[in-house]
């Protein structure tokens, strides 16, 4: 029972990190990135191959097979994911109108998925990488205890990313991003180059996604192309829209309840003897929920404007408590 709970919370935190990463791109800046799970996957691979050493089972290959400490692997996961993000951004977002971007991001995700799936030298092709050691090294931990360890790390990182999101949201930078999202003509007429402003938030989002992927592989210890089918990006997007796009708490909610909650719920559904049914049920439920939300609560469960509702009175009160500091 305890394991059920820590497992749920750990995966919930990791999912929330992914949705938060999409929120800074799409929620804050309107960047229609529908291949976010690709950056998660790249992060997972990088965190794996830089910390787990060379393959010991014959017939498997991956590079570079370093044995860095886990936290460096995690940072590298973020760095490589954001590096890939920069390249794709400069080739697409910079040149294309947002409506076309969706198509290009999907196309790039398919290309990279196929490259990794068929190329055995890099990440062991369709077999994938496996046997990633626990981040606690060789300490003797039960699955339950390890789950608690990863939960602690994931919760801290989630907290950090929510804090970064909050800082962006409340800064002039966040204001300009919202301006670009709502009406680019205005921000352009007032001297802002849209792609320059969006580049950095895109990079930050990719970094967060990569770190989320790194945490995921440290927890589940294996990764392969079957784990990141392009449809997963759709699930992330749905989670954000259902949770409340633009609101980082909405993103956290989406990660926990929509992604993790539904996955758990599906376990209790009859599978009709077909193991693929659970996966199909999950996406079906996500889809139905998405349609319902778009119909009845288009701003999501926790809308963006709640941040202002809560923010303004609190700041006013704070200002009154500390004389001389106006909001």
């Amino acid at each position: 029972m305890l394991f059920f709970l820590t497992d749920l919370l750990t995966l919930g935190c990791i999912n929330a990190i992914m949705v938060v990463s999409l929120n800074v791109q799409y929620g804050f800046a309107g960047i229609l990135n529908v291949s976010q799970y690709m950056y998660v996957a790249i992060g997972a691979y990088v965190a794996g191959v830089t910390t787990m050493g060379r393959p010991t089972v014959p017939g498997n290959t991956w590079a570079p097979g370093w044995t860095l400490p886990w936290y460096l692997g995690l940072v590298l996961a973020g760095v490589v994911a954001s590096g890939l993000g920069v390249v794709i951004f400069l080739f697409t977002v910079r040149r294309l109108r947002m409506d076309y971007l969706a198509i290009v991001t999907v196309a790039s995700a398919y290309i990279i998925w196929n490259l990794i799936d068929t190329n055995y030298g890099l990440f062991n092709g369709d077999t994938g990488i496996f046997g990633v050691p626990y981040i606690t090294g060789n300490a003797n931990l039960s699955t339950e205890q390890y789950s608690g360890v990863v939960l602690a790390v994931a919760a801290v990182i989630l907290g950090l990313f929510v804090w970064v999101s909050r800082r962006i949201f409340r800064s002039p930078y966040g204001r300009v991003l919202r301006g670009i999202r709502e009406d680019e003509v205005i921000t352009t007429a007032f001297g802002r180059t849209s792609w320059r402003a969006q580049l950095w938030v895109f990079v930050i989002g990719c970094f967060m996604a990569g770190v989320g992927g790194g945490l995921l592989i440290f927890y589940i210890t294996a990764w392969s192309p079957a784990a990141w089918l392009p449809i997963e990006s759709f699930a992330l997007f749905s989670a954000l829209v259902i949770g409340g796009s633009g609101n980082y708490w909405g993103a956290v909610f989406g990660g926990f309840l929509v992604l993790e909650g539904i996955l758990e719920l599906v376990r209790f559904l009859p599978s009709f003897g077909d193991p693929a049914a659970a996966g199909a049920f999950r996406l079906l439920l996500v889809g139905v929920l998405l349609i319902a939300i778009l119909r009845y609560r288009p701003e999501g469960v926790i809308p963006e404007r709640w941040l202002r509702w809560y923010g303004a009175p609190a700041r006013r009160l704070w200002g009154r408590l500390r004389p001389g500091v106006s909001q």
């Binding site: 002039p172 930078y173 921000t187 001297g191 950095w200």
Partner: peptide, 14 residues
């Protein structure tokens, strides 16, 4: 949005 040269628009500083 009209104000130019806002320091807080630089991502790192923001």
């Amino acid at each position: 949005i009209g104000a130019q040269g806002q320091i807080g628009e630089q991502p790192w500083k923001a």
